[in-house]
Design a protein around this nucleic acid. Structure first.
Lengths: 141, 141
DNA sequence: CAGTATCCTTAGGGATACTG
DNA sequence: CAGTATCCCTAAGGATACTG
């Protein structure tokens, strides 16, 4: 039930919408990982790079698909692979994500807080370092 | 304990930082309410406008103060009042908040989702409507 | 008025095992 | 490989009562 006669409805607010759709704990990383990998990635690559469980990754990917940010393709190779790719809409969110990252980076820097390295690389604050990529499998080879 | 040797540390990432500092459930609204009210507001005005409990508002305000976004002033009137004001840093976050709001507004509009009215007014998507303000007390009179 | 303190509920995330 | 299903646990919020 509702407690108070209030004109403000959080559930219908764009902040709440964006927060759910784009700024969950994992979604920025999932999306930026795809950008860094030229717009596509597959399930196990996410798992290798992010300390995320299968369940949570799965939920996030499905939600992002439903929100129109990414789409899923099964490539009928042998063995068949699944690829996640950014949609136009997903790609259109990148500048905003970068702006958020930049603001956060500046604030953390100003406050002398340590900043994660892989994220810095993904966002161009650090040269692409293939040794980092090698450590997590795939691309480095 | 840690589960896997992972190069990515979520707790040291700017997204996580911003998410905690600025994109919590209530913080954008608290901050934009202050902007709309020319940079300052007091406790009870927040309570009147937002469906938030005393406890949660109090926690949020304290966190925002610690993060340097706002500061608290007790005005020694009779009766004494408490005012919350934006700091430079808090003010500097406004363009980013607007960008997030705009992106959310566009996405919700494109998807035909209903959007809260007070938020629209705060963000200039709707004329300032003092009848709305009157309904929640204070300013309208 | 401007909060604190207490208690309760729920949503999000994690570990792990299992399936096609 | 690419997920689902299950169970568990914690943190964020809400209701409400109390304090200076």
């Amino acid at each position: 039930m509702e407690k108070r006669e209030q004109i403000f409805d959080v559930s219908k607010d764009p902040y709440n919408h964006m927060s759910r759709m784009l700024f969950g704990r994992w979604k920025p990383f999932i999306l930026m990982a795809m950008v860094f990998d030229e717009g596509k990635t597959n399930f196990s690559d996410f798992i290798k790079q992010l300390p995320i469980s299968h369940k949570v990754l799965s939920e996030n990917l499905r939600a992002m698909e439903e929100d129109g940010l990414i789409y899923r393709t099964v490539v009928p190779d042998a063995p068949p692979r699944t690829e996640y790719r950014l949609t136009e809409s997903g790609l259109s969110m990148v500048p905003l994500l970068r702006a958020v990252y930049d603001a956060g980076w500046k604030d953390m820097t100003a406050k002398g807080m340590p900043i994660d390295t892989l994220g810095e690389m993904w966002h161009g604050y650090r040269e692409r370092d293939d040794r980092l990529m090698t450590r997590v499998g795939k691309r480095g080879g």
